[in-house]
Amino acid sequence: MTTRRTATMLGLTTLLFGAAACGAEDETASPATTQPGGAPGTNKAAPVSDKCTSSGATFTPATGVDVAGSPTFTKIKTAGKVVVGVKNDQPNLGYKDTDGKRCGFDIEMAQLVASKLGVDPAKIEYKDIPSANRETAIKAGEIDYYVGTYSITDKRKADVAFAGPYFIAGQDLLVRKSDTAITGKETLKGKKVCSVTGSTPIQKVREEALTEPANISEFKTYSECVSQLVDSQTDAVTTDDAILKGYAAQIPSQVKVVGKTFSVEKYGIGLPLEDKALRDKVNDILAESFTDGTWQKIYDGTLGKSGSPAMPPTLERY
């Protein structure tokens, strides 16, 4: 009896693995490159590919760089590589595809900084750090800097330093492509809203009573929320528009970003607290990219594919 049970279980497993194996004969049809501007013409069966494609900006390592008085820079120079904290599940922002390649707006900003510090971007060591551990990782020296939807707040400035902002995001809404009813935060009444458990955007929705409490759902990851959106289990996903744009750029035929942003989040590069020299240097790097078109090129090739334009922000040095 129990051997029969085992046999059934093992049979089930092999069946499922077998199904997975035969599942994909002719799927080479997925387009490998995306059209600029996020062409919405693709049908549901062939969305934008998961494979990482860069924006096209090239980063040649600068030579003869020196940042006097920066212990972190000395560490980077001696190691010959740089350790960067990033996210890995935000499409077109901080993403790791099925081949292990990294791409996205934040990733390319990290590569830009690394190259201007004299490090070959190919030699970057990426570390996936969840949001709760960011300050600890920087303080412990586990990473040299952090680029991953890291909002500059006074509270955090007590633990880490910020260079930037390099992007101004704001809370916004992601809805189904066909949805015309939701145009902004005022039109959320009676609609279901989803975000990550306990995150600031969903608390804002609660505080401002943008929708009834029964319509609020929270999951552990944004992907789950977006999946629920596509399945019509929820009507809107809310978080920073940068993250939403990333999803919209990946599946432009199914979702879109609407409305104006209703909060302000300034993304900065997290750096060790006491290292002013490095902070100034990184700010210089950012300022240069704003004016010489690199920033724009990176944006247009990543988040810009969602169809929403953006401009470089103003630096806030301190």
Partner: peptide, 20 residues
């Protein structure tokens, strides 16, 4: 259930830590 969109006891600490 806290991991699956139901705001019960397990979700409290996420909410509170976002509040600071």
């Amino acid at each position: 259930a806290a991991g699956f969109a139901v705001g019960e006891a397990g979700a409290i600490q996420d909410i509170l830590s976002e509040l600071g």
